[in-house]
């Protein structure tokens, strides 16, 4: 049987999935801990990408800038929680939908105001070639981005599963009241979830600058994909987000090749609708 471009597509799909996974894990972590969907998640990614761009202008390559960008986004996320999201939680349930949506509009507006709508990219000096593996050819930037995302995702997973703080977070996401009774500081857990969730897009943003360009509205497409991934894996499930992301990566790459690149996102969005309607708890979800 002639496989044609299939192996190449599968590898590309999985690699794309690793980066989606990192973005989606941040989103699902925040959701899991406090039942808030951060509609501005894509805009946090956009900020991370601009930051990476800024670092590259002073000579720091994206891969080296990654820890700094992730740290900056951690602080930013925790800050946004402390001064803003905390108040939304006290309001009616719609407040957190609108509040984070307002944040989306505000951050996009600020980016447009300061950086204009121009599309910008990093002058990537380190990874320019391609790796060959039999019939499969992978661009070095894609490979580095995917492996980097995989490493960060594993670090996050280990943190959530095996550290005291991570266990506290999981307890909070399972039952907030019980967690409070167990002496877990829920406010601290919430702030931490926003910090870590934002640090995930920080790392993802740095890695994405190897292969993508940044502009004020870049976040929307990634955020929407992340919603799909999170729904697919089950809102709140870290492992689910990882599996869902690879699925979405494959669907996007295969759809783009076999149907048309212009409509590659249609199967992804259809996937969301089908999953939430038929299996609202997601593929690996617990509720």
């Amino acid at each position: 049987m002639e496989l044609g471009p299939l192996p190449q597509l599968l590898v590309s799909g999985v690699l794309a999935g690793f980066v989606f996974a990192l973005i989606a894990m941040g989103l699902t972590l925040i959701f899991g801990v406090m039942d808030v969907v951060n509609f501005a998640h894509g805009e946090f990614l956009m900020i991370a990408m601009y930051l990476t761009l800024g670092f590259s202008l002073v000579g720091l390559q994206p891969v080296l800038a990654l820890p700094f960008v992730a740290l900056a986004l951690f602080l930013f996320g925790a800050f946004v929680y402390r001064i803003f999201v905390r108040r939304l939680l006290e309001g009616p349930p719609e407040a957190s939908i609108f509040g984070t949506f307002g944040l989306l509009v505000l951050l996009q507006g600020l980016a447009q105001f300061f950086f204009t709508s121009d599309v910008r990219s990093v002058n990537n000096a380190w990874f320019t070639g391609a790796v060959r593996l039999g019939p499969i050819r992978i661009g070095e930037p894609e490979l580095v981005a995917a492996l980097g995302a995989l490493v960060v995702a594993i670090v996050l997973y280990v943190f959530i599963e095996y550290t005291e703080t991570g266990r506290g977070m999981r307890a909070t996401s399972e039952d907030r009241i019980a967690a409070t009774l167990m002496g877990i500081d829920v406010q601290r857990m919430n702030a931490l979830a926003w910090g870590i969730g934002s640090a995930c897009v920080g790392a993802a943003g740095a890695l994405l600058m190897l292969t993508y360009q940044v502009y004020p509205r870049v976040g929307a497409e990634f955020a929407l994909t992340a919603f799909v991934v999170v729904a697919l894996g089950g809102f709140g499930s870290i492992q689910g987000a990882f599996v869902g992301a690879i699925l979405v990566g494959l669907v996007e790459v295969l759809g783009g090749f076999y149907i048309s690149p212009a409509v590659k996102l249609i199967p992804v969005y259809l996937l969301y609708l089908i999953v939430v309607l038929l299996r609202p708890q997601g593929l690996l979800g617990r509720r």
Partner: peptide
Amino acid sequence: RGLDLVIYGGLICLIAALRP
């Protein structure tokens, strides 16, 4: 230049947080 978005987004944030 996005200033309308800044004003409007900021307003939404304020309303969501203070006066739903």
